[in-house]
Design a protein around this nucleic acid. Structure first.
Lengths: 208, 208
DNA sequence: CGTCCGTTAACCCGTTTGGGCGATTGCCGG
DNA sequence: CCGGCAATCGCCCAAACGGGTTAACGGACG
């Protein structure tokens, strides 16, 4: 049996992409796509979805409120929230409104399909960053801290300067190194931290 | 009368630059330049400096320890610490060791000369970022909070995504905008926050 | 009604960054 | 003595970024 999926998403482009994704994949079936919370509440009951992909940032009333009302009427419907912001406020409100999954829109298409299947069989799919927020909510402090990335002394220094907004050449000047050396250190740092840009590295550094 | 200045700095390039700066400016006089804490403690008493520019990250023993010993023998000598790292640990240790000024090496040359003069007449020159750390140490929380930068809703969203490590085109995709539009928003954000790079903006955002 | 501002978008242009190589020098620990 | 790793520097190249400038549109506000 196909999984009946409905989509609530205001951005036409994204709605289109998601629709194509669901319709184009065997085992999934698109039973509706809505561009607002109002339209969704109006139309959803008629199309009997099993899983709803719900954008959280809808223009009129929020996707969170939409979920609450939807679950009130049809508690059996499973909802996966989609958002571009990893805001913890939204996350917990969504979960308490009855959403089971929570994905960032960055999530690759294949992962979204998996998530639909997971939520359909009772799971609670969420992006790793999101899962982390949940864990930290209930196990504050250090349980969730395998933060054991071992940077060498030099790498630590380079990262610190990077986090102060220095450019490659400024770091080089400050530490008395060649720019290419800084470049090398940065590549190793990114590798160790599993990131691909200075910003991600800085975020990890600032939240040590 | 010229101000007698001594320099303690291991990096030959920087030592050279500082030496030239001091020697080339009327009203200042270079009475010694040392490349290590040991050499400085050995040679400083003989050259009778009034102000010492002290690098904090010396290879052997730290510039902080050097200051402590120096001030123990000649409390009248004024010390300005120089560092590339805005580490609060180092800052407070330096101040308790007897340093009066604290500058980041990014400081423009003219400002360094000013600092020497200021410390010489009893002031406590420090880089703005450093001064802020001191203030926040003694007035925690909100006294030091003129953080009233008013970003518009859209700008707030763009900045949040930027702080999650999104690239321009990813932000554009996430918000349904053209890359050039994101570019525009970013320029305004940088202007409002008085920064010139994504990293500086992210740092300000994360410490809201 | 005119003006400011937020939002959108585009063009140009130089600089910065990130990734993929490779290479040398030390030092440490088996 | 050899392998591994930190630290250093190099070259190439494409993509991303930051800044300058311009411009259209719509709402807000006096």
């Amino acid at each position: 049996m196909n999984i009946r999926v409905a989509i609530v998403e205001d951005d036409p482009d994204i709605r289109q992409s998601l629709s194509l994704l669901v319709r184009g994949t065997p085992g999934y079936e698109l039973c509706g796509a809505f561009e607002s919370a109002e339209a969704a509440l109006e139309g959803l009951p008629g199309v009997r979805p099993e899983v709803v992909l719900m954008d959280i940032n809808l223009p009129g009333r929020s996707g969170i409120e939409c979920v609450r009302q939807l679950k009130a009427g049809r508690p059996g419907i499973q909802v996966v929230m989609l958002t571009v912001f990893d805001d913890s406020e939204d996350l917990f409100n969504s979960l308490s409104a009855g959403a089971s999954g929570y994905l960032l829109k960055r999530t690759p298409p294949a992962r979204i399909l998996e998530a639909i299947a997971e939520v359909h069989r009772g799971g609670a799919p969420m992006s790793p960053q999101i899962a982390r927020m949940v864990v930290e909510k209930f196990f504050p402090a250090d349980v969730a801290r395998p933060r054991k990335v071992e940077l060498s002394g030099r790498e630590e220094e380079v990262l610190q300067l990077l986090s102060q907004g220095y450019r490659y050449k400024e770091i080089a000047a400050a530490l008395g190194l060649a720019v290419d050396t800084v470049h090398s250190h940065l590549r190793r740092i990114y590798e160790k931290l599993h990131v691909t840009s200075r910003t991600e590295a800085v975020v990890k550094f600032l939240q040590r």
